[in-house]
Amino acid sequence: MTVVLVHGAFAESASWSGVIPLLQAGGHRVIAAPNELRSLSRDAAALSGLVASIEGPVVLAGHSYGGSVITNAARGHDNVRALVYIAGFAPVEGASHAVPVAHPDRVAALIADAIAGRLRG
Rank of each mutant, 00 (worst) to 15 (best):
I70E: 02
Y65E: 01
S15H: 10
R118E: 08
A52H: 02
H103P: 01
P21R: 12
I70N: 02
N72W: 11
R29K: 14
A114R: 03
G27D: 05
A90I: 09
G76E: 01
V58R: 02
V4G: 02
A11D: 12
S15D: 11
G26K: 10
A9E: 15
S53M: 09
R106W: 04
A114H: 04
G18S: 06
L60I: 05
P100C: 11
A112F: 03
E93R: 15
A52K: 04
V3S: 08
A82N: 00
M1Q: 09
G94D: 00
V69W: 07
I70P: 00
G26W: 04
A73V: 02
V58L: 03
L40E: 05
S15M: 09
G66S: 02
G76K: 05
R29A: 14
S15F: 06
A32P: 11
A98F: 14
V84Q: 08
I54D: 01
A98E: 14
G62H: 07
V58C: 04
H77C: 03
G76V: 03
R42G: 14
M1S: 08
S96W: 12
H28N: 05
A52P: 00
L23Y: 07
F89D: 03
A25C: 09
E55R: 15
V6W: 10
A9R: 15
S17L: 15
P104E: 02
V58N: 05
V92L: 15
V51N: 06
A11L: 08
V30D: 00
H7Y: 01
I115M: 07
S39A: 07
L119Y: 04
G67E: 01
G56Y: 06
Y65M: 02
A82T: 00
A61K: 00
G56F: 05
R42M: 10
V69D: 05
